[in-house]
C-alpha cells in the first residue's frame, strides 16, 4: 500500500507507507500530485526537462522535512506550473535533501491543495516507514 486517503471532515488526510526513506519521499510526492491535480499524469505535460531539487536544513526532523518537501512541490506547482518527478532521493544526517528527477510542465495553473500541514502529523519509523499528514484543500 503506497498511500491512501483517511477520513477527515474538511480536508484530505493521507497515510503513506514505504520500505525506505527515499521511497517514502517519492510516495509523498505522488500523493501530493494525485490529490492536487486529480487525474493528471505526465502524459498531459506540455514540456519536461531534467532537474535537481535540494532542501538545505529545512526540517527540524524527518516528519518536518517531509512536510517541507511537499510544500516546496506545492510552491513550484502554484507559481511555475511545474511538477517534479523524483527518480532518486538522497537525505543526509543533517536533514539535507537532494532529489534528482525531472521537471514536467503542466497545463494546469496550480492545484487544489493550498497547504501541507503539521496538523495531525505523525511519523512512524516502522518498518515499514509510515507517515500521516493532512492537506488543506
Amino acid at each position: 500500500m503506497p498511500w491512501r486517503k483517511l477520513d477527515h471532515p474538511a480536508d484530505v488526510r493521507i497515510e503513506v507507507e514505504a520500505e525506505t526513506l527515499e521511497d517514502l519521499f517519492r510516495e509523498c510526492a505522488d500523493a501530493f500530485y494525485s490529490v492536487s491535480l486529480g487525474t493528471w499524469s505526465a502524459e498531459h505535460s506540455i514540456g519536461h526537462s531534467p532537474g535537481v531539487f535540494s532542501l538545505q536544513g529545512s526540517g527540524d526532523d524527518l516528519a518536518g522535512l517531509l512536510v517541507t518537501w511537499m510544500n516546496e512541490l506545492l510552491f513550484e506547482l502554484e507559481t511555475s506550473r511545474r511538477v517534479f518527478v523524483p527518480l532518486e532521493v538522497r537525505i543526509d544526517e543533517g536533514l539535507n535533501l537532494l532529489a534528482i528527477g525531472e521537471w514536467v510542465l503542466t497545463p494546469a495553473a496550480g492545484g487544489r491543495v493550498k497547504a501541507v500541514t503539521y496538523g495531525g502529523l505523525s511519523f512512524d519509523l516502522g518498518p515499514p516507514l509510515r507517515l500521516e499528514v493532512i492537506m488543506d484543500v
Binding site: 471532515p9 474538511a10 500541514t117 496538523g119 495531525g120 493532512i134 488543506d136
Partner: peptide, 9 residues
C-alpha cells in the same frame, strides 16, 4: 466546531 489544524475550526 470541527477538526482543524492545531486550533479547532
Amino acid at each position: 466546531m470541527h477538526w482543524g489544524y492545531g486550533f479547532p475550526i
